[in-house]
Structure formats: structure tokens, C-alpha cells
Simulated assay, not measured.
Amino acid sequence: MPERKPRRWVRRLWLTAAVLLLVTAGLWVGNSSVLWGTGEGRPSLLAHRGIAQTFPLDGVQADTCTATRIHPPDHGHVENTIVSMRAAFDAGADMVEFDVQVTSDGQLAVFHDSILECRTDGSGRVADHTLAELRRLDLGYGYTADNGATYPLRGKAVGLMPTAPEVIAAFPDRELLIDLKNDDPADGAKLADHLATLPASRLATISVYGGDNSVEAVRSRLPQIRATSKAIMKDCLIDYLAAGWTGHVPDSCRHTELHLPQRYGQYLWGWPDLFVDRMREADTRVILVAGDGDWSEGFDQPEDLATAPSGWYGWLWTNRTDVIAPLTR
């Protein structure tokens, strides 16, 4: 019997499969971190609120008072104070992050919570107090690791709440990241008023992030400043997912910061090294946040470093520069 010729649809199926295989191989080669990433350098460290007290994350919600569930302290620093920030820089931090809120008398106070009861011996909202009133508080008053049996930080941070201008002046040649805690355009405008008084060389070392509205108020006044928010990061990542396979970095990803939970980076073209290289060329920092990125989870213990990409040389978010810096040097 004569040999039967393959059906046309079978030949088309094989041709389609071959084309898809070649396309997939081409995408992998063009975006291979192994082939094209530089793989050089060490991680840069972002010290979250200076050197801070850490806490277990299980069960934490938006309204959880984390000061009442800290790990037993092995240092005496209270977050968001100049003392804790200086300790972070001395330990090896490359940049320090701190939180800013506007007081009732229009000052830029450095404090995380919107209310005072959790961490301090005060009460009410930060926004309802003057700076002078806030200066009298004990910032370590509410911290306990044993359900209130002891309060090891009480009395150690009385009067230590700084202002944003004071922090900027205290570290004149260091990189700083300012977190606008309230998503209010008025807060962004107040911060922009101060930043606008700084020379261009100093502005180049300061970044701002926070809510979409407050950050936009800063960017509209000072478009040259590095700024980011959820909306900015979302626009960048969507655009990059669409175009990054070509090696192109979209404009939405330029001169900004990306705070990326480690579990999601794997879906980005060129991850990890080539992606970091592309963003560096676009003047954008890639800051890796531990876990899902919830509740300021950082690379705080030696075992946390094992979860970062091998040879990572972007930025790492940490609450414990004193622990992590010696391991990354």
C-alpha cells in the first residue's frame, strides 16, 4: 500500500510548536540573568526607621499595637530617633528610612503611628498635638516583650522625637528615604515646602514615598526628586511586564524606586541580576522586601538572607542593620 502522507493539520501543529519553542528560547536567552547580568557588587542596605525593635508577624493586623509584642530586646534603640538612625549608619546602612507626619502647628514630626497610645505615654492623634507637646513624650513607653510584665525601654527615649528638617541636617551627606504616613496632599505640600529650600545636590540624596496623593503633591512641586507610591510602582511594573522582554525600560520606571516583595520578583523579565542592571541604567533602585512585603517585614536575621536571590546586589530592606551588615560585607 502507498505510504500515507501526514495530514496537513499535523504538519501545522508541529510547525506551530517549533515556532513557539524558538520564541520561548529567544525570550529566555534575551532575558537571562545568568547570561547578561553583571553579578557584581554587594547588597545596599536600607535601614527601616534606623535600628528598630522587631516583632513576630503572625496575626498582625492594621490596628495591631506592635510595640506590645516585640521580641526580647537585644539593643536599646527606639525607631525613628536620630540616635537609632545614626546607629544604623554606623553599622553599615547605605540609606535610612523615616516616617513623617504634620503636627497641629505645621511641623514635620518624625513618628510612625497616627495615634500615640501604642508606643508612647501620650494619647490622641499626632496631628492634634503641637511639636512642643510631642517632644515631651517618652517614645519607648509602650514597648514590652512579656505582655506588660516589664517595659524595658521606658525612660530611654524621652524628648527624642525629631523633625524631618532635623534628620536631614543631622545626616547632610547620607541617603534618606522619607515616608509620608498620611495620604494627604497637604502633608506632601508641607514636606515639599521644606525640600524646596535645599540645594539640588542635597535633593539628589533624598527620596520620598507614601500614599498616591501625598507623593503626587511632592512630585508636582519637585519633579526632579526621586519619589514612589503604589500607583507609581504599579504603572512601572505593568508597563515593564508588557515591554521588558525586549530589554526596554519604560519611562514609568525611570528615576524612581521599586519596593518589591521577594516572592514576586521572579515574574519580572531578567530577574534578578539583569532586572537590577536595567533599572540601575534607568536611575531606579530595586529594594527587596522580605516575605509578602506586609508590615515592614525585613531581612533582619541571618536566615532571612538565605531567602534572597543568590548573589543579590540590589537593595535589601532591613530593621536590623547591625545584624545584617556584617553578613553582607
Rank of each mutant, 00 (worst) to 15 (best):
P152K: 01
D63H: 12
L241Y: 06
D304F: 02
A231G: 15
F111W: 08
R202A: 07
V208Y: 02
K234S: 15
Y141Q: 04
L177A: 08
Q101D: 14
V167R: 00
E133G: 05
D146V: 03
R119M: 14
D304R: 01
L20W: 13
Q101F: 14
D146H: 00
A242T: 09
G26K: 12
A192W: 06
P223C: 04
G298T: 02
R174M: 10
R219M: 03
D179L: 03
D74M: 06
F111M: 12
W14N: 13
P326F: 09
P309S: 04
V167T: 10
K190S: 08
Q262M: 11
F299K: 04
Y267R: 12
T120F: 13
G210V: 05
A290H: 08
L21T: 03
A109R: 05
H75Q: 12
L134K: 01
G270I: 09
L153C: 12
A227M: 01
K230Y: 14
S123P: 05
F111E: 09
Y313N: 08
D58H: 11
C236W: 05
S114I: 08
L268V: 05
D304K: 03
G293L: 01
R219H: 07
P6N: 06
I324H: 01
G247K: 07
R12W: 15
T150S: 13
D99F: 11
T68Y: 02
L15H: 11
T130E: 00
A87M: 11
A204I: 05
R320H: 13
E175M: 14
A243I: 10
F89Y: 14
V102P: 01
E79I: 09
H112P: 09
M233Q: 15
A164S: 15
A18L: 15
R136S: 11
L116C: 05
Q107H: 07
I324F: 08
R49Y: 01
W36F: 14
L327N: 10
I287V: 14
L198P: 03
G314T: 07
N182H: 02
W317I: 04
G293W: 06
A93Y: 06
A88F: 12
W245M: 08
W36Q: 11
E175K: 14
N80W: 11
S33A: 13
A204C: 05
M161H: 06
Y209F: 12
Q61H: 13
W271T: 02
A62W: 08
D251N: 11
L131Y: 00
A306V: 14
Y141V: 03
V126F: 11
